[in-house]
Nucleic acid binder design. Structure first.
Length: 332
DNA sequence: TCATTTTACTAGTTTACATCA
DNA sequence: CCTGATGTAAACTAGTAAAAT
């Protein structure tokens, strides 16, 4: 899990989306997530890859848990559904999805690759193609694999795919989430489906994939937002406390103005200017270390105070905590 | 180079079907 | 057993972008 490292998210989070994720049709779905889809949306298991700049940019072709049959949607649901379909099929004694061989061959011979231009399509730009009434009739009959009397009404029958058909389609989808015309025809022939059905299945499958991805992305961004909000809250509080301390006269009298402070980039200790006699007498960082700590060029101290609460002394050799505020707390 | 057509896709919707209370 | 609500998947529609003509 990437988001469990909240402290990493705090300041160095990069929320970049994959390039063209929503614009390039071909690449769009290739973004994927390693989500545990067996749990739907509630238990999204973010497997967001920390090595990538964007957690959303891993490819679908990578084997993700939920791109497999058993994980998407859920193994139980799918198996259950498959069992249902199988039972139905068995009871009916005929697989209604099976396309009559002649029809399948006819469609294959047509060699049409376009979804909407396929004669198999009753949808899409159908009206433009309705001139081919003969082929449409063939389509209508063969697509349902049912008798002509049922074909009379305009209600479209939705025929669930069998377990085997779904499995093969899933397998194929794992290999490539889009199909070229040849693959589509081959798959349709193998499964006894119309190419249009195979195509629709892939379209819907891509849509489901994307939906899942969106859910994962949403979850991730939500967590990022929470983390950043928390960090922001913490920093605001810190600022407030620092301001309060700064306004306190007691503190103010003891404190060297921040402009006189410098921090050694190598040891991250705060140094006082060498002009400070008190600091020099106390054996200040200047002599604990390999080089002189001076205020940055052009930074003239507004005033020199005898005691610098932030400066380390030789006696107190412990490194100053990274945050001055923490140092102040530890002193009190 | 520009206009038109074709192709392949997406997002959103509809519909049929299964399940469950 | 019936019925309505609900979820899911197959199928559809409208639209877009890119390639082809």
């Amino acid at each position: 899990m990437m988001v469990e490292k909240d402290q990493d998210l705090g300041l160095s989070l990069s929320l970049s989306f994959p390039e063209k994720v929503m614009t390039n049709n071909n690449n769009m779905i290739r973004t994927s997530a390693a989500a545990d889809c067996s749990s739907g949306t509630a238990k999204l298991q973010l497997n967001l890859m920390p090595t990538l700049a964007s957690p959303f940019s891993h490819l679908l072709h990578q084997k993700t848990p939920w791109s497999t049959n058993e994980a998407f949607p859920s193994s139980s649901d799918r198996n259950l559904e498959a069992c249902r379909v199988e039972t139905r099929t068995f009871l009916k004694g005929i697989d209604v999805n099976r396309l009559p061989a002649a029809a399948a061959d006819a469609e294959e011979e047509a060699g049409v690759s376009s979804p909407n231009s396929t004669l198999s399509s009753i949808s899409g730009k159908r009206c433009e193609r309705e001139a081919n009434g003969e082929d449409l009739d063939l389509e209508r009959t063969s697509s349902r694999g049912i008798s002509d009397e049922e074909d009379g009404d305009n209600s479209r029958k939705k025929l669930r795919l069998s377990k085997d058909q779904s499995a093969v389609l899933e397998e194929s989808f794992k290999e490539h989430n889009t199909l070229n015309p040849k693959q589509k025809l081959a798959l349709a022939k193998r499964l006894g489906l119309r190419p249009r059905q195979v195509e629709v299945w892939f379209q819907n499958r891509r849509a489901r994939t994307k939906l899942k991805q969106t859910e994962v992305d949403c979850e991730y961004l939500k967590r990022c937002c929470e983390s950043l909000t928390e960090e922001n809250r913490r920093l605001q509080k810190e600022v407030q406390e620092l301001r309060a301390l700064k306004l306190s006269p007691q503190f103010y009298m003891q404190m060297t103005p921040p402009t006189t402070l410098t921090m050694c980039p190598s040891c991250e200790r705060v140094a006082v200017p060498p002009s400070s006699s008190a600091a020099a007498a106390a054996g200040t960082p200047a002599d604990h270390h390999h080089h002189q700590h001076r205020p940055p060029h052009g930074m003239v101290p507004a005033r020199t105070l005898p005691f610098n609460p932030w400066a380390t002394t030789a006696a107190a050799a412990t490194p100053i905590p990274h945050r001055p505020f923490d140092a102040l707390h530890s002193r009190s």
